[in-house]
Amino acid sequence: MIRHHLTDSLLMAYSAGQLPEAHNLAVATHVSLCDECRARMESFDTLGGAVIDSVEGVGLSDDSLAATLARIRDAAPPAQRAPRKRGVFPGPLQDYVGGDLDAVRWRSIGGGVQQAILPTTKQASARLLRIPGGTAVPDHGHRGLELTLVLQGAFSDEDGHFGRGDIEIADQQVNHTPTAEPGEDCICLAVTDAPLRFNSLIPRLLQPFVRI
């Protein structure tokens, strides 16, 4: 049961194609798990369709249809996407990891916490975090818009309990201290506009080296 959802503005910005790639990844991954947000996303797509319908058409070159039919005839058959295994990670995340949880190449960032940075454009960054049950995520403030999506286990903080599929949306005002709940490791997809800023001294010193 997902309790923490995406906002309308994030869903509309995703539908309109206005988010950085890293945020798109978090939205697409959440929507893969959440039918409620899928329905809202598709309703924003419908609005996009209405906008296309109302756009004034621009004349095409005379041979445009013929050229398109030629493209259709000449096109190679579409490449079959490798079937994905159902796992901890929904499809869009598996595409970025190159597999499910067992394919992640973790790096320790201290305090028992591990991370893996995912390849996206530099405008924003996406990483997986693995936090042992009962461990606090290092205290951090935010720059810009941060999305944290739980994929396994759970964490809780001042805003409540977050389990699989729940997404926390934090902006720069929030200074929170999430703690992984006892039990299995908590695995999250964390997306930030800018690098995280840790409040305690040592992690801050490490920051340039571990790319947090």
Partner: peptide
């Protein structure tokens, strides 16, 4: 689940 304009919009956006 979608009408034609919606579907074509998503392809054009991508």
């Amino acid at each position: 689940r979608a009408n034609v304009s919606t579907w074509i919009f998503t392809i054009a956006r991508n």
